[in-house]
Nucleic acid binder design. Structure first.
Lengths: 203, 203, 203, 203
DNA sequence: GGCTAAGCGAGACGGTACGTCTTGTCTTTAG
DNA sequence: CTAAAGACAAGACGTACCGTCTCGCTTAGCC
């Protein structure tokens, strides 16, 4: 017979203190951008949030998960979803997307948080998957969809490799950000779009 | 005028024990691929290498620097430099390069080391610069040079944006590796080359 | 006005774990008598006590302070205070005291702990003061009081130098123990008392 | 057949560098009185002496042995041996001895070295024996001899316990020094002599 | 007068304890 | 009766020193 285990006390999400949750994510975000990923500690987050450490451990499995949620909260605030503009003009629409991506990566306020999460996902595959699923995938899928709609109306060639095209757009920006190999500005976004589109446009 | 600093005892590189140095880099590489970046400790590297911790701290300023040197040693062993093939056929040459890049990223043996260094450079800008200067930049420059030589003989269009073209080639592969968004194989490398070249080829 | 200091987090004695405290003192005592003062380490004490090192550093400023408390705990257990017997017969009473002192110094179980603390107080004046105040002074004062009461009833001469008399009693025993210059037994205690009293006794 | 072992290279005392030896003892003495026993390191002694660490390890088995030799060198310089005065007047002679002992213990220059050696001999019985044999024993024996010569001429009682009498003289001074329980001056020395002699003097 | 063996200054080495820091769990206490 | 505050066990951090070793350089004494 199965019986009620004296369980490691799964906390009851219904009783979660939203004020504390928000304070924790805010503190995590603020501290990350102040001291950087390497010097970030759970203790400091708890202290800044005016919260006991246990309250963090109760709801998140790791420091990376807190950072991820902090990043997610910010992104969710900013966007409402992966709404891609469709003005009918593909180059313009892609420039809009790429400029937004590049601007986000160039934002000094968010930079350290982005890098902290990037560091964490190198060692936490589950977190990496979650990040892709929640933030990256929707954006890439929306971009792919926009490319397919453009292909349907003949704005790009029939045999265009849409999957690769999306990576041709996003890959360079992330590469440059990751390795700090050059400036991240609107002009750069436009050059990516121009070069990536060159091979797609019917002659 | 430069003057003799009352320095905190810079160690004398001439007296460096090469056996120990090699053992440290080997241990760092092996341990990283065994336990991953998060669980990697200087203490464990020293123990595995049969070396005192101080011998590591004497020659490297941080764990990241050790990992970087371990990565560098491996790359230096493998290649002799950024020799890019020049068969005269640009697509073939680029496929060779991209396939090598993708293979390196897909190599499970090196994966954790690559990710560990990637995590470290998020928090250590100097290390990031060194990595780019020593490993990435030469490869990118060589690729750019190959593209310019192709442009000179008319294999790609006169107005091709070489700098962006290089990022169009490398960016997608790193993006896919960083975020684990898809398989990294020769076919993938070929697709990148095909799509990136499409816009460069004269019609 | 006294004000709340932004203190480096003085720990709260009310929350102290008594089990841990006791385990630490026991481990310190046991290890000292096993390996001696020179080979004694905080790390080993913590390990033996099943305690984190920080729990030692939280409550004691130095290894010497731990040893001192270990010694104190033992002494406090043994005695209830500096109760000196007063049978009315001074030589008998002093023999009782000196025999106890000599027996304590001769006890092989306590020897290494005594020597460890003796070594520590050579380099830590504050600790030396504490040791004297808590352990030596009471005993010496009690002995002086007993001598004065004997003087009051004419058992020793009017002009007896009580302060020196006390040192004449204790000094030789400690000297012999410190320098291991001879046996420490009851007969030795009796010889000290006899010689020291000879000059005090009225003729 | 016995043959010359490739021995752990006993060093050849004939080739010993006296300048280095002296510099080491001087440095040990100076550093001890500057930084105290706890902060004294072989490394620092070597550096101060302008000597390699190995030169110390070649000639002394331990830090304690170096300190002991430093102490010995100083004492040997000062005295030529345990010459006790014999003016014919015992109290005067003993006052001379005790005043010298007390002055040595009170000397702030030598204090830390004395305490360092005292700390070392708590953990090194062989060193303790050597100290007693070379420095303490001669002085005590000379004092005992003086007391016996006094006894022979009837200046002290026939049944005087000479061995204890010596400890009655030296014990209090060392006790007071060891535990810092009071001032060490000539008046104190005189009080010891007066009290100790009181019981020895024929009535 | 040259050879050679040893002592020497210097300092890198393998170890290990130091005292501090952070982690994740457990306990106390104040609201 | 909850959650902050924080003590706890554990163990890595980066530093310091230990005692050994390996370098060249100097020096002494035997050929």
């Amino acid at each position: 017979m199965a019986y009620a285990l004296p369980m490691p006390n799964e906390p009851d999400p219904a009783r979660r203190n939203l004020r504390a949750q928000r304070a924790i994510l805010d503190a995590a975000r603020a501290l990350t951008s102040e001291v950087g990923y390497g010097a970030l500690t759970i203790k400091a987050i708890a202290a800044r949030a005016g919260v006991g450490k246990q309250t963090i451990y109760r709801w998140w499995p790791s420091k990376g998960a807190v950072l991820f949620d902090a990043l997610l909260a910010e992104s969710t605030d900013a966007e409402g979803g992966p709404n891609l503009p469709d003005t009918g003009d593909l180059p313009t629409d892609l420039r809009t997307v790429l400029r937004a991506v590049v601007a986000e990566l160039a934002d000094p306020h968010a930079d350290r948080l982005n890098r902290a999460v990037t560091a964490e996902i190198q060692d936490d595959e589950a977190l990496a998957g979650e990040l892709v699923r929640r933030l990256l995938r929707p954006q890439m899928d929306a971009t792919a969809a926009r490319l397919r709609s453009a292909r349907a109306v003949g704005q790009i060639t029939e045999d265009a490799d849409v999957e690769i095209a999306v990576e041709l757009l996003f890959g360079p920006a992330y590469h440059r950000w990751l390795l700090r190999t050059g400036p991240l500005d609107a002009a750069y976004a436009d050059r990516i779009v121009a070069s990536a589109l060159a091979g797609l446009t019917p002659r």
